[in-house]
Design a protein around this nucleic acid. Structure first.
Lengths: 224, 224
DNA sequence: AGGAGTTTGTGAACGGGAGAACAAAACGAG
DNA sequence: CTCGTTTTGTTCTCCCGTTCACAAACTCCT
């Protein structure tokens, strides 16, 4: 019996999903400075997008605005948070506690945005003595038990590139279904497992391409 | 009848530009394991994309393959590197030496991919005593002289969100024309200045959205 | 109460990218 | 030399996302 959830079963375009967190951040800023109501124009300026795009994006969630008035900041903030799923706390494990893993473990933005780092894992026994961000660095072998104990479904990979695929395989085997990959490697995972990658040097290379263009042909276009 | 692009193809789609670094990384891997020639099918598998898409992407650069044979790994590697502009070394400054700035300063992937961190800057005088990754942490006030001295055109922002816009303004004023922003804030810059952003928690929120979807409606699609 | 002024939500046009399919070119066998 | 095989480069079609433009809906003022 497939009970279709009429409330949140709508298909929100991927491009819109990627912008919802930006809107959420903008709304939190507005709320902090005491604004209770805002127009699509204002919010769009805060989020750095076109106001028509913003309205269309929000229309996928429902009709949460009032014509002639705008949006209630608190109400819209809650609706977006609920749609994304960050009204609850998501437990997260980080694998690979090198320079980047350290930084991620200490990053306060995770905690404040609905994520809780429950464990730090590393394959190197020399690191198991360390305490980072108030957490013991534990053996990678403990992955299964930690995932089971905390019901973890999101994993972060911050290992060197060579280790990334095997870590991902192990994560998938333990039941993790979403992976954020910082290693400069292409991961292959089964259908149904979500992967997003962040590659620091790729971003710089894209900038370098446009930078080179500018010096060759001055007056060329900007970067999106 | 396609006008042959003699030197550098003029209009490379943005989506293609974003994938070129991935192809470059794949080619370097292939070269390291001794492969001298590869087909579009092989290379596409290495890069995690469709082979038709790969061929179309490469066609924007020129005709560097041989029909019936494939691509010469070394030759194609050089051509892509040249197109991106990473045959030369790009000097880069990092502003904001907190946890993330530390990690970025120590990240070896920058150096090996055509970027050289020439200075680390922080507004906090307490940090000016530190030495990170072999570089003195210097005052943010030194930005102008450093940019002038090393002819820097790419800057990295790893400050808290509140400082990001003023740092960007200052960077633009000194002549920096490409910015990689890790702060969770929307930057506004003049036309002609390129900005790319990396937001760690946004990526997690996107994963959370799909994760929530899975638990509500099992059998739903994966993440792109 | 009614009209003027705002602002949302959305239908429709538009542009760019993804993928399938195929013709052109290179190589090797006979 | 000719034919068959392989693989690239390109064309064509479809789909997603962006943007425009406007009717609907709400507030405020008289």
């Amino acid at each position: 019996m497939t009970a279709r959830t009429p409330d949140s079963a709508r298909d929100i375009p991927e491009a819109t999903v990627a912008r919802l967190p930006v809107y959420l951040r903008a709304l939190i800023s507005l709320a902090e400075e005491g604004t209770t109501t805002c127009s699509s124009e204002e919010l769009a300026a805060f989020a750095g997008v076109n106001s028509a795009k913003l309205r269309k994006d929000l229309s996928y969630l429902g009709s949460y605005g009032t014509r002639g008035v705008g949006y209630d900041v608190e109400y819209l903030r809650y609706q977006i948070a609920r749609e994304i799923g960050v009204t609850q706390d998501w437990p997260v494990v980080i694998v690979g506690i090198g320079n980047l893993g350290h930084a991620l473990a200490n990053y306060s933005g995770f905690r404040s945005r609905g994520f809780r780092v429950v464990a730090l894992l590393d394959a190197d026994p020399d690191r198991h003595e360390e305490v980072v961000a108030g957490l013991d660095v534990r053996s990678f072998e403990d992955l299964e038990s930690i995932v089971a104990e905390h019901d973890v479904s999101i994993g972060v990979i911050a290992t060197p590139a060579v280790a990334a695929q095997s870590v991902a395989d192990r994560m998938v085997a333990t039941g993790i279904t979403s992976i954020l990959n910082f290693a400069p490697a292409v991961l292959s995972v089964p259908d149904g497992v979500g992967v997003r990658k962040v590659d620091l040097s790729i971003e710089l290379q894209i900038l370098a391409y446009h930078e080179q263009r500018k010096s060759i042909a001055p007056g060329a276009g900007a970067v999106s």
